[in-house]
C-alpha cells in the first residue's frame, strides 16, 4: 500500500493496471515471482529443460486435484481437512481391488469414486443437516478416514508383493491400469495424471462459472441466510460441495497409488495443508463467497513450481520451509485488496 504512488506513477491507466488490480492479476504476481526465482536459480540450466516443467506439473497434479475440491468447499465458507485421509482410503482400496482381488480397472476406479463420494457425503451430511462446523466435521472425517485406511490394510502397504500363508513373498505383475495412469503422452511431454488433473479442474470450473450450482455455492459463502431466503437449496448445495471434494480425493488417491505402484495407508498425510495453501494463494477467500477455479490453478502452479525449484537446487529442508513460508505470506499480502 505504501508503494501505491510509485506504482501508479510507473504505469499509466490501462488494461495492464486493471489486470494487476484484479484478483487474477494479483495471484499472478506471486507466480511470476516464483518463476523469476527459477530463472535466477536455474540449477545449471535444469530449469530450462522441458522435462523439468513436465515433472513440476505432474508432481503438482495430485495436490491440484485435491485443491480443486478444496476450492469448491472453501467457496461455501467451509474447509475440508479430510482430503489426505480420503485420498489414502482410495489409494489402498484401489490397490486392494486391482492388485489383490484382480478386479477390472474400471470397476475398481468406479468403486473408489463411490467410496470417496460416500465419505465426502458423510462430512456433507454432518455439516449441512446436523449443522456441525466444517472444521470439526472434517477433522473427525480426517481421523476416521485414516482409521479406515489402516483397518482395511492392517497398517501395511498394499503392493505387488504379497505374503502368502506360509510367510513367503510372492511377486505379482503390476496391472496395466497402473502403468497407463503413470505414463505420458504427446511424445512423452505430458503425464496422464496431469491430464486427469486438468480435466478435473476444467469440469469443476465449468460448473462453478456456468452452472446454477456454482452460483449457489458463491451465494452461500457470501451470505448463507440471504441465500436461504432467496430460495437457494442451501443444504443440498453444501452437501454436494463436500461430496465433490470426496470424489476429487478418490481420483487423487488413484493417481497417487498408480504413481507409487502401491497403496500406502499413510499416503496423503499433511496434503490438506498444501491443498489449502494452493487455494488461498490463488486468492480464494477463506471466509467464502469469493474466488474461483482459475485462481486456484495459479495457486497450484505457484506452489508446484516453488517446490520443484527448491528441489532441483537441492535446498536443504530448513531453507525450503523458510522460503515457502515467506512466499505464502508474500502471495497472500499481494492478494489483499487495497482498501481505497
Amino acid at each position: 500500500m505504501t508503494d501505491s504512488t510509485q506504482t501508479s506513477a510507473l504505469m499509466k491507466e490501462g488494461r495492464f493496471v486493471r489486470f494487476l488490480s484484479s484478483s487474477a492479476g494479483r495471484a499472478t504476481i506471486a507466480f511470476v515471482l516464483v518463476m523469476l526465482l527459477g530463472l535466477i536459480f536455474n540449477a545449471d540450466g535444469a530449469f530450462f529443460k522441458l522435462g523439468m516443467h513436465r515433472d513440476a506439473l505432474r508432481q503438482a497434479s495430485v495436490f491440484g486435484i485435491l485443491a480443486v475440491g478444496m476450492t469448491v468447499v472453501i467457496i461455501t465458507g467451509g474447509i475440508d481437512l479430510s482430503v489426505g485421509s480420503i485420498l489414502a482410503v482410495s489409494a489402498v482400496l484401489f490397490s486392494i481391488l486391482t492388485l489383490h482381488l484382480d478386479w477390472p480397472a474400471w470397476i475398481s476406479i468406479l468403486s473408489c469414486i463411490i467410496v470417496g463420494a460416500g465419505l465426502g457425503a458423510i462430512s456433507g451430511t454432518l455439516i449441512a443437516v446436523t449443522k456441525l462446523q466444517p472444521f470439526i466435521a472434517t477433522l473427525a472425517m480426517m481421523t476416521f478416514g485414516r482409521g479406515v485406511a489402516k483397518y482395511i490394510t492392517g497398517g501395511q502397504k498394499i503392493s505387488t508383493y504379497l505374503t502368502n500363508s506360509d510367510g513367503e513373498v510372492i511377486i505379482k505383475e503390476l496391472p496395466r491400469i497402473f502403468k497407463v495412469i503413470d505414463s505420458r503422452i504427446m511424445g512423452g511431454n505430458i503425464a496422464i495424471v496431469s491430464i486427469i488433473f486438468l480435466f478435473c479442474l476444467l469440469i469443476t470450473w465449468l460448473f462453478l462459472a456456468k452452472h446454477k450450482w456454482g452460483r449457489e455455492l458463491f451465494s452461500i459463502g457470501g451470505n448463507e441466510e440471504s441465500a436461504r431466503l432467496s430460495g437457494v437449496p442451501v443444504k443440498w448445495t453444501k452437501f454436494l460441495a463436500y461430496t465433490v471434494s470426496g470424489i476429487m480425493c478418490a481420483i487423487a488417491g488413484i493417481a497417487q497409488a498408480a504413481q507409487e505402484t502401491q497403496g500406502d495407508p499413510e499416503a496423503g498425510g499433511g496434503y490438506e495443508l498444501t491443498a489449502i495453501a494452493m487455494v488461498v494463494i490463488g486468492g480464494t477467500n477463506m471466509a467464502g463467497g469469493r474466488g474461483g477455479m482459475g485462481l486456484t490453478l495459479i495457486g497450484i502452479l505457484t506452489i508446484g513450481y516453488l517446490e520443484k525449484i527448491l528441489s532441483i537446487n537441492a535446498v536443504p529442508e530448513s531453507g525450503r520451509l523458510l522460503i515457502t513460508g515467506v512466499i505464502i505470506v508474500l502471495a497472500v499480502l499481494t492478494q489483499r485488496k487495497n482498501r481505497n
Binding site: 446454477k212 452460483r215 458463491f218 451465494s219 451470505n223 441466510e225 432467496s230
Partner: peptide, 24 residues
C-alpha cells in the same frame, strides 16, 4: 445486508438469485 443480499456477489448474480431455475 444480513438477510437480503449477498454483498460479495455482482448485481447480476443478486438479481438472478431467486429466479435462477427459470434462467437456466
Amino acid at each position: 445486508k444480513a438477510t437480503g443480499l449477498v454483498l460479495s456477489m455482482s448485481i447480476i448474480a443478486n438479481i438472478c438469485m431467486s429466479g435462477l431455475v427459470e434462467l437456466s
